[in-house]
Each structure stands twice: as C-alpha cells, then as structure tokens.
C-alpha cells in the first residue's frame, strides 16, 4: 500500500518535472527565434546602408568601378538568401567585399575629408558591431539550447517531443572572425 502511494507520487513528480522541462525547452526555442530575428534586423540595416555608401564614394572612386559593383552584387545576393546556410555564406562574402572596398578607399585621402562619408563610416562600423553582437548572442543561446537537449535528463524529453539541434551562425574561415575595420 505504502509502496503504491510512493510509486504514484514518484510518477506524478516525474510528469510534473517533464512538463516543466518541456516548457523550458519551448521557452528557450522562442528565445532563439527572437535572437535570430535580431540578427535579421541588423543584417537588413547593413543592406540598407550599403547603397548609400556606394553612392557616396562613387564620385571619389571613379577607377574602382569593379570593386563597387562587387559590393552591390554581394549585397543583392545577401538580400535574396533565405535559409541559414546560404545567408551565412552570402553575408561572409559581403563582409569580404566590403573589406576590399575599404582597403581600396585607403588610397583616397579626399574621402577622409568628406563629412557625409565620415557619418556613413560611423553608421557602418556600428552596424558591423551590432551584427557581431547579435550573432554572439544568438550563438550563446544556441549553445545553451543544444546543451539542454543533449544532456541528461532533459535529453529524454527533447527526444520524446522532437527537439532538434540548432546550427550556429558561424563564420567559416577563422581568419575572417574579426569585424572588418572600417577606416577611410
């Protein structure tokens, strides 16, 4: 009789724990979604800034049409990308082309004097930082989520209810980990 009660108690406790763990997982998945939308917002900010930047420097960089075109192209590609992998790839490519644009711009001292471009430079630096911060936050959340669904005992609930591991938003080449330094 007593053992029966203990068993029933244990089962009830187990079910309660299971519900709590499931809710916790759902919550962190929601947090992941909002972290991802933050990256999206910042990426969009960058996409919106780039046409302005290209327009502003076009007058100075008359001999660098190719570089400018590449940036525009990379930007359009990044806007079109929809799944995570493509997006990461396109954004990496965009970062690369931006970096080459800034390297080229180093050679034009006139650019330094232009106030509009200095303002744009500040905005772009800020956007690059925001993207990397948003990515950092997203990856931190991803790590917490992945750890939760792979460790005992939450992995039982995760397997039962079909939670899958989430990919990191990563930059593949470690040499590119640094934010491009935006300097004219």
């Amino acid at each position: 009789m007593v053992i029966g009660w203990i068993l029933i108690g244990a089962i009830v406790l187990g079910v309660l724990w299971g519900v709590a763990a499931y809710n916790g997982l759902v919550r962190s998945r929601q947090e992941l979604k909002s972290a991802w939308s933050q990256i999206d917002v910042q990426l969009k900010r960058r996409h919106d800034l780039i046409p302005n930047l290209v327009e502003a420097v076009r007058g100075y960089l008359t001999h660098e049409r190719e570089t400018l075109e590449k940036v525009t192209q990379a930007r359009n590609q990044a806007v079109r990308a929809d799944n995570l992998k493509d997006k990461a790839q396109a954004e990496n490519f965009l970062t690369q082309t931006l970096r080459s644009l800034f390297a080229v711009a180093e050679r034009y001292p006139d650019l330094k004097a232009n106030q509009n471009i200095l303002v744009l430079q500040e905005e772009l630096t800020s956007t690059e930082n925001r993207i990397s911060f948003a990515r950092q936050f997203y990856n931190d959340q991803t790590m917490r989520f992945n750890t939760a669904i792979e460790t005992v005992p939450t992995n039982l609930i995760a397997n039962l209810t079909g939670f899958n591991k989430v990919e990191f938003f990563e930059i593949e080449d470690p040499a590119q980990r640094e934010v491009p330094s935006v300097k004219f």
Partner: peptide, 20 residues
C-alpha cells in the same frame, strides 16, 4: 554632434549584445 551620435550607436550596439 558626431561624438553624441557615436555614443548613441555604442549604446544601441550594447543593447543588441544583451539580447535587445
């Protein structure tokens, strides 16, 4: 003021870093 603009940006960046 450009210094103030920088401060505004930096604060917004940090608010992104703590999850927005």
């Amino acid at each position: 003021d450009t210094y103030h603009a920088r401060l505004k940006n930096v604060i917004e960046e940090v608010s992104v870093a703590v999850g927005g």
